[in-house]
């Protein structure tokens, strides 16, 4: 149990997927301009990443490994994730329009989000067990969401500040993200 908690903390804070592993930066900058969007995106990532973690782990353990097809990991994972996301999107749109409005619209963005793909690959690389995979996927996603929401909070204010023209928008966003990454150094070595 303790190990799992350590794993979770490690994935959320110490090895934060955005700020320490540099995965998922495009949507990080794109969807952090407003708090609402950031929250929606964070939720969607949690949802998809857990699903994707599970399904890729299964693919890897039951198909790729036994048949020695590990070199097909990249292509099979991306296909599986893309199909899964699209399926979920269509499903939500039809059956739960309310949920779709809050969360589903972010799903396409996740298809090509390297955070999802990267987290799945890390899970395999680190040889996690199934339960560890679920926990790490969830925690990575939470870490992503946390960073995104905190960033959005700061960014909402920066958007209103008198940032010099050439620095506006993406440029200042990146610098802020850098400072946030630095602030996350606080967690270094905590696991």
């Amino acid at each position: 149990m303790g190990d799992y908690i350590v794993l979770a903390i490690s994935c959320i804070f110490v090895n934060n997927i955005l700020l320490a592993q540099f995965l998922g930066n495009c949507p990080f900058l794109g969807t952090s301009k407003k708090m609402e969007t950031a929250t929606g995106m964070a939720m969607a990532v949690v949802f998809v990443l857990v699903l994707a973690g599970i399904i890729t782990w299964l693919t890897n353990a039951f198909i790729l490994k036994p048949f020695n097809l590990e070199y097909l990991r990249t292509i099979s994972f991306i296909l599986v994730i893309a199909s899964l996301v699209q399926f979920v999107e269509m499903f939500l749109k039809k059956s739960m329009p309310a949920l779709y409005a809050g969360l589903g619209i972010f799903l396409p963005l996740i298809t090509t989000n390297c955070a999802v793909m990267g987290a799945c690959l890390i899970n395999i690389k680190e040889d996690y067990t199934f339960i560890e995979t679920v926990i790490s996927s969830f925690s990575y996603a939470v870490g992503f969401g946390l960073a995104l929401i905190l960033f959005a909070g700061v960014r909402e204010r920066i958007l209103l500040a008198r940032v010099p023209k050439p620095l506006q928008d993406t440029s200042i966003g990146l610098i802020t993200a850098g400072i946030i990454a630095m602030a996350f150094f606080a967690f270094k070595g905590m696991v």
Partner: peptide, 17 residues
């Protein structure tokens, strides 16, 4: 169709919307 989110909307379909 890159769904990159660079426009600030959540993916290309949201942008189209």
């Amino acid at each position: 169709g890159a769904n990159c989110g660079g426009c600030g909307f959540a993916g290309c379909s949201a942008a189209a919307d």
